[in-house]
Design a protein around this nucleic acid. Structure first.
Lengths: 213, 213
DNA sequence: CATAACCGGATGAAATTACTCCGCTTTGTT
DNA sequence: AACAAAGCGGAGTAATTTCATCCGGTTATG
């Protein structure tokens, strides 16, 4: 991502963004193997334009992943910055994350990125930032007594990549929101465990987050 | 499904089951558009065998759906029968449902079944049974004061179709189990809502279950 | 042991998807 | 304003994937 992009003409830049956005949506709706023609069509650009900017599917995949991680980082950092209370910050982040389905997208994208190691460094840096911030919030919320003591980072990670098939006439957004709210209720301090089940906190931590390693 | 199957030779029957089982697994792992060749391969039978038993993809889809719904019905009815306490029955059902990912499978399958209405009747009958039993359990649990008053059938429906991308080295089963446990904690009476968000109980009920209509 | 049912995979048809190429349009610069 | 460079679109072709059939050999069952 260094000198490869000396500059991009205004229209080119705009189209590039349209493509990434369309890809993001389609990856979620139809899986990451959607035909690239479809992506171009949805983005409202010609297929040639897409292929010029992204020589192959992997390039597009990486671009989408980078954008996703970046938005994720923005979300969690904004929440941390603007929300004094750690628990509220966590709630806010997880909620927006679910609504935008960013965590899910990242989780789906991730396995496909490890086949191509190049440019993986950039992505990894952002990912680490996300992980660190989320963990910090969780730790603080726990220290404040707001987050259950037996909740682990793994729980947060899973909350981030949650997905439900929304019943008809309920938007995916609403469904996700509701799910997350319920889970946050479950994670709040004060409730005992309904069923035995290991707290799953005894597993190596740093490795679990939106984007699994 | 009436007189179409006068009888099936022992090996034929066995192979049929192998195919359905393999399809079930692959539909979950790779989506319902896996190549049929792959299904045959995983089932350990020739492609010819598959096509003889299931003339086209839709036939296989329907067979898998039927099996899935049947297992779902067995689960919920067994839970209701063997567990005196409604809340515990509900927990048990939702837990096993999540572990086997039956709800998710049903949800994924459902939209594709409505293109072909034939034989839809049989399926619908089972589905109705599942829905009715789950709703009954939920109502009873609520009456017992175990399930939060502001929890709706929609919440149960969503719990059934939940899915998380399990982080590496954590099995999907474990992940699902944990998620469901947390959500059940959240749904238990006693906790207040973390965030506003409509209780989503004000939507038509009978229509939301594992298999959305 | 006879035969009807069943098995498997090689095989060709059909559909999907990937990717290139080039004449025309837009942008930004002098 | 006028020119050069960068960008655009999509028709068209190649490659791959997927579907679906057919038939010689095999196995269950009475």
């Amino acid at each position: 991502m260094a000198g490869t992009t000396p500059r991009l003409r205004a229209d080119a830049r705009r189209n590039r963004d349209l493509i990434v956005t369309a890809a993001q949506r389609l990856f979620l709706e139809q899986g990451i193997d959607v035909p690239l023609d479809e992506v171009a069509r949805q983005a409202g650009v010609g297929i040639g334009t897409l292929y010029r900017r992204f020589p192959d599917r992997d390039a597009l995949l990486r671009a989408v992943a980078e954008d996703t991680l970046r938005r994720l980082a923005d979300l969690v950092e904004a929440a941390r910055r603007e929300e004094p209370d750690a628990w509220h910050a966590l709630c806010r982040f997880l909620r927006s994350c679910a609504e935008l389905r960013l965590g899910e997208l990242a989780a789906r994208l991730d396995p496909h990125l490890h086949r191509q190691m190049r440019t993986g460094q950039d992505l990894d840096e952002i990912r680490q930032r996300v992980i660190a911030t989320v963990l910090e919030l969780a730790a603080r919320a726990q220290a404040d007594g707001a987050l259950r003591a037996d909740a682990g980072p793994l729980d947060i990670a899973m909350l981030m990549t949650l997905h439900v098939y929304a019943p008809a006439n309920v938007s995916g957004d609403q469904a996700m929101r509701r799910m997350v709210d319920i889970m946050l209720d479950g994670l709040r301090a004060g409730g005992g465990a309904v069923l035995p089940g290991a707290p799953s906190t005894d597993v190596d931590l740093r490795r679990y987050t939106a984007v699994e390693p």
